[in-house]
Computed example of a mutant assay.
Amino acid sequence: MQAYLTPIALLVASNVFMTTAWYWHLKFKATPLMLVILVSWGLAFFEYCLAVPANRFGSEVYSPAQLKTIQEVITLVVFAGFSAVYLGHAPTWNTAIGFALIAAGAYFVFRG
Rank of each mutant, 00 (worst) to 15 (best):
A3V: 12
A3R: 14
Y4T: 12
L5T: 15
T6P: 07
P7K: 12
P7H: 11
P7F: 10
P7E: 11
I8C: 08
A9V: 15
L10Y: 07
L10K: 12
L11P: 08
L11S: 14
L11H: 12
A13V: 13
S14E: 11
N15E: 14
V16Q: 02
F17I: 02
M18E: 15
M18C: 12
T19E: 06
A21Q: 03
A21K: 03
A21I: 09
W22V: 15
Y23L: 13
W24V: 03
W24E: 07
W24D: 10
L26Q: 15
K27H: 14
K27F: 05
F28W: 13
K29N: 10
A30T: 15
A30S: 15
T31Q: 06
P32S: 04
P32F: 01
P32K: 03
L33C: 01
M34R: 04
V36S: 05
L38D: 12
L38R: 07
L38I: 11
V39M: 06
V39Q: 04
W41I: 15
W41L: 15
W41E: 07
G42R: 02
G42N: 02
F45G: 01
F46Q: 00
F46H: 01
F46T: 01
E47L: 00
C49M: 14
L50F: 10
A51Y: 03
A51H: 01
A51R: 08
V52R: 02
P53S: 01
P53N: 01
P53D: 00
A54I: 06
N55K: 09
R56Q: 10
R56N: 06
G58D: 01
E60K: 12
E60V: 05
V61G: 07
V61W: 03
V61I: 12
V61L: 06
V61R: 13
Y62R: 07
Y62E: 07
Y62C: 04
S63V: 04
S63Y: 10
P64K: 12
P64V: 09
P64A: 10
A65P: 00
A65H: 02
Q66D: 05
Q66A: 09
Q66S: 05
Q66G: 06
L67H: 07
T69W: 04
I70W: 14
I70R: 10
I70A: 09
I70D: 06
Q71E: 15
E72C: 08
E72L: 13
E72V: 14
E72T: 13
E72A: 13
